[in-house]
Amino acid sequence: MISNLLMIMMTVVLVNNYVLAQFLGICPFLGVSKKLDSAIGMGVAVTFVMVLAAAATWPIQTFLLDRFNVGYLQTVVFILVIASLVQVVEMFLKKYVPSLYNALGVYLPLITTNCAVLGVTILNIDNGYNFIESLFNAFGAGIGFLLAMILFAGVRQKMELADIPGPFQGVPSVLLAASILSLSFMGFSGVVDGIFM
């Protein structure tokens, strides 16, 4: 049981990393990774919302949509749940946990249209995870996102100082760096199976 949960989590952190292997959440990965502070803030906010979204959408799918045979409403319902959840969390934090709101507040509205959050909730259902597995999968996906953001922020800070040929300045060089980072994460395939099997 425990090893199964850990395996789900480690797989999504290292092998099936959402950003570097499955191309989910590329926009914040490329847009907010210029400074280490903002990369960490965004990563933590995404992890937080992912776990909450997984906790909210799994019961809705199981007890409402599946029960009344309206599974086709999944896309509409999930995106609305995530959007309203983000709004509620923002208001709650602003009122009761201002310190956390100051750290994460500005990133929360941006997360509504982050495909990684909607992606993790749909993948939980598609993979047939139970409630606990869904939570671990969502947490792992968030940690994987945070890890990719931190690593990439480090790479980009070094790249600021590099002398890059004209046409490659800006976006192309960032994408090529992401390619190399993604290549290095491919080395993890098979590692997780080896540890837990």
Partner: peptide
């Protein structure tokens, strides 16, 4: 696979920058 996706996308944008002499993508950033 994933690395190839990033790589080809980067090369495509570099090619566009080269042929449009930087006019197409003025901001040079996301």
């Amino acid at each position: 696979l994933a690395p190839g996706g990033f790589f080809v996308f980067g090369m495509l944008i570099a090619a566009i920058n080269y042929f449009s002499k930087g006019k197409a993508i003025k901001k040079k950033d996301f």
